[in-house]
Computed example of a mutant assay.
Amino acid sequence: MGWSYRKSKKFGPFRLNLSRRGVGHSWGNRLFRVTRSADGRRTLSINLPGGLHWRKTIGSSR
């Protein structure tokens, strides 16, 4: 198992994510979030009370 690094900083509904792979960001709240990862993937997440969640990759990395 290799080492990893992840740091996250929140600015209201905006979150900046720092990792070993680079910088990503996301926008939203607990129920609805849009994420752009360090490698370019875009993900839409919807989380409902009771543990129900749905996630879809909108765009892939180049």
Rank of each mutant, 00 (worst) to 15 (best):
S8Q: 12
K9Q: 11
K9V: 15
K10S: 13
K10F: 04
F11N: 00
G12S: 02
P13R: 11
P13S: 03
F14V: 13
F14S: 06
R15G: 02
R15K: 14
L16I: 05
L16T: 00
L16W: 09
N17S: 14
S19M: 06
S19K: 05
R20N: 15
R20C: 06
R20T: 14
R21V: 06
G22R: 00
G22T: 05
G24M: 02
G24H: 03
H25W: 15
H25Q: 06
H25C: 15
S26E: 11
S26M: 08
S26F: 00
S26P: 11
S26Y: 09
S26N: 09
W27E: 12
W27Y: 12
G28A: 11
G28S: 12
G28I: 12
G28Q: 14
G28D: 09
N29P: 11
N29M: 05
R30D: 15
R30E: 15
R30H: 11
R30Q: 14
R30A: 15
L31T: 15
L31K: 14
L31I: 11
F32L: 14
F32H: 13
R33H: 01
R33Y: 02
R33C: 01
R33P: 08
V34Q: 07
V34L: 14
V34T: 05
T35G: 02
R36W: 02
A38F: 07
A38L: 12
D39Q: 10
D39R: 09
G40Y: 02
G40H: 03
R41F: 12
R41V: 15
R42V: 14
T43P: 01
T43S: 01
T43N: 05
T43L: 06
S45M: 00
S45C: 04
S45W: 00
I46T: 08
I46H: 10
N47A: 14
N47R: 12
N47S: 13
N47D: 10
N47H: 11
L48K: 12
P49K: 11
P49H: 07
P49Q: 13
P49S: 12
P49N: 11
G50A: 07
